[in-house]
Amino acid sequence: MLAVLYPLVYIVSSSFSSPRAVVSGQVWLFPVEFSLRAYKSIFRSSQLMTGYYNTVVYTVFGTLINLAFTILMAYPLSVRQFYGRHLFMTLLMITMFFSGGLIPTYLLVKELNMLDTRWAMWLPGALSVFQVIVARTFFQSSIPQELAEAAQMDGCRDTRYLVSVVLPLSKPIIAVMTLMYAVGHWNAYFDALIYLRSEKLFPLQYVLRNLLILNAADPEMLANTAAKIRDQGFEQALKYALIVVASVPVLIMYPFVQKHFVKGVMIGSLKG
């Protein structure tokens, strides 16, 4: 456990330390020469803030689309009397084992004129087969069949039943799915790499990649250190701060749903 914890603590500490301390290797466990400079310059950078804004947009709407599609797919598949259920199931499973691959999908997105639009970030991954199966299993196993029969007796249609009986009963699984999909969107950079061209649309992770891994520092962010060009130490501290800023929202979110998601994974494992 310590092995897992140490890098995390180290990153956080470094991000709060002064650049000089980071470079000279004084930081081992706790912050040295506490400083918030790195954070200040992050929040001044418009590139990063645009990235943040975009990521929030992608995450919120993307997750909503995901949820809608997953539930719409999973619910009918869970109804035993649904004629043609196996056909749809097969249709779904095939996509899990065989896919068109990168290039044909790219060509399709291009053909649909979705290149370099927000749609390219939302639609191609709108449905995860795994999540559908998890949701379906949940609907099947945790919602008593008698409810459906009773509702039918009262003249309740399927849609109404789904909205007013099934969904309220499925809060745990919906929480898990939301978390999974949201984390997926939050952390995704690959789709942006393929489909997006214009800087205005880049999500946070893509910006991060440019800054952290390709080492292309945002001039705006370093502007206030112009006097010390090639302020290597500051760049280092900046990177640590960036990492913290990018990961914190997700890490904050997850303890709240943790209780649920262990359950969700368990349901998924019943029929993987």
């Binding site: 890098p7 990153i11 952390n187 950079y189 991060l208 990649r209 952290l212 891994i213 997850y254």
Partner: peptide, 19 residues
């Protein structure tokens, strides 16, 4: 604590490693 790293994005993960 052991679950937490799963939620770190690949980009961040790789930068941690590189750093």
């Amino acid at each position: 604590i052991t679950y937490a790293p799963h939620f770190i994005s690949t980009v961040v993960m790789v930068s941690i490693v590189i750093l």
